[in-house]
């Protein structure tokens, strides 16, 4: 494994409130470039909320208020002057439930590049679509039926289509919010392999409920509990020799 020390995302004192209720309390962490960072913790601990702060997806929720500082490539993103559109084009997101658009497989992947004007000609666009589908490991399965609706694929294929859709706009970071929780074990294994390959080119943050998955795919792990970041560090260390007793209890299955 190539070690690197470039910090891609740096969060400091991030608080999130839903109306009066505080969901995240003073979260600070650094996320390194081209690594997989797993966010684990019991339900309702705030790991998805934190993930959605990074691409400002929480803006969609009227009652949600985010304070503190998150820097992506040393640029502050928690501010009203942030260009959310360009931020989100730099940060792809894959959701818990596969959510392909009700369009053809081709159009699903071509959606991002065409709204961002990444392709000048039709063949450019085709190239981007095919490359993205290949990177997502889906191309061989769908190359004969690019014009069929994306919703006609199986759940695991749909999720890989969503990954292809996300990488088609050439992001630097990919956020994954429990990407395998709606999939069967075989589809999950395929996606995990894919994550391992994508790590070479992208910074990946993955929220997961499965500790085995976190241990398998990630290099760094952050353990959240009740809106606080309890412990973060090398995945190996967290899963073998955590500092905090709560982490120890969680990974050994004593609660959560």
């Amino acid at each position: 494994m190539v070690e690197n020390n470039n910090t891609k995302i740096s969060a400091k004192d991030v608080d999130v409130f839903y109306s009066e209720k505080q969901a995240l309390n003073k979260i600070s962490m650094d996320i390194k470039e081209k690594e997989v960072t797993a966010l684990i913790g019991p339900s309702g601990c705030g790991k998805s909320t934190f993930l959605r702060c990074i691409n400002r997806m929480n803006d969609l929720i009227e009652i949600c208020k985010v304070t503190g500082s998150i820097k992506v490539d040393n640029e502050e993103i928690i501010s009203s002057s942030t260009d959310v559109v360009s931020l989100r084009s730099k940060i792809g997101m894959v959701f818990q439930k596969p959510n392909p658009f009700p369009k053809s497989i081709f159009d699903n992947v071509a959606y991002g590049p065409s709204i961002h004007g990444l392709a000048d000609t039709k063949s450019d666009l085709e190239n981007i679509v095919i490359t993205s589908l290949k990177k997502a490991g889906l191309y061989n399965e769908v190359k004969d039926r690019l014009n069929e609706p994306g919703t006609s694929l199986s759940g695991g294929q749909q999720q890989r289509l969503c990954i292809a859709r996300a990488i088609a706009v050439n992001p630097e970071i990919i956020l994954m919010d429990e990407p395998c929780s709606a999939l069967d074990p075989i589809a999950t294994a395929i996606i995990e392999e894919l994550i391992d390959e994508l790590r070479l080119n992208y910074t990946i943050i993955i929220v997961t409920h499965s500790m085995q998955q976190a241990a398998r795919v990630s290099q760094k792990t952050c353990f959240f509990h009740l809106g606080e970041l309890i412990e973060s560090g090398e995945t190996n260390k967290i899963f073998t020799n955590p500092d905090n007793t709560k982490t120890q209890d969680y990974i050994t299955g004593r609660f959560g």
Binding site: M57, V85, F95, N99, F101
Partner: peptide
């Protein structure tokens, strides 16, 4: 229309 479609589109950077 499911919220997930909105999130999917906005998440790619569509306005």
């Amino acid at each position: 229309v499911p919220q997930s479609l909105r999130e999917g589109s906005l998440g790619i950077g569509a306005n």
